[in-house]
Amino acid sequence: MKFGIQVNEGPYQHQAADSAYNFAKAAIDAGHEIFRIFFYHDGVNNGTRLTTPPQDDRNIVKRWSELAADHNVDLVICVAAAQRRGICDADESKRNGKDADNLAEGFRISGLGQLIEAGIESDRLLVFGD
């Protein structure tokens, strides 16, 4: 079965990012496919590679990147939400005249159409947020 997941909250702020990760992991372990994880609103903060949590804490951003690398999960950051919050890849950085970019490995920036598509293409869409 194909699952689509939407994450609306940032890491270390709300349990949504942990719940979504644990669900995705369990779904993959059970042989299901994660069609896409769409990060919306404050959820875009899950995609900054500058995150540096203490060593004894989970690294939520790295955990997502590893999930993408190990299981080919499509991690999509909402562009409008990302621009507001200072999350950008090299292209977005250049386009907006910024001096840096911070998108983590395995994430890509795109638009709301990707969420709609996830709703259409997935058998189930789950929303994790506040």
Binding site: F3, N8, F23, A26, A30, H32, R124, L126, V127, F128
Partner: peptide, 20 residues
Amino acid sequence: VDYTGFVELAAEHDVVQSWL
């Protein structure tokens, strides 16, 4: 249920409605 059970419930039902 654990997370595996969560996944099973999501698969068994036609739609998942997340009350936030």
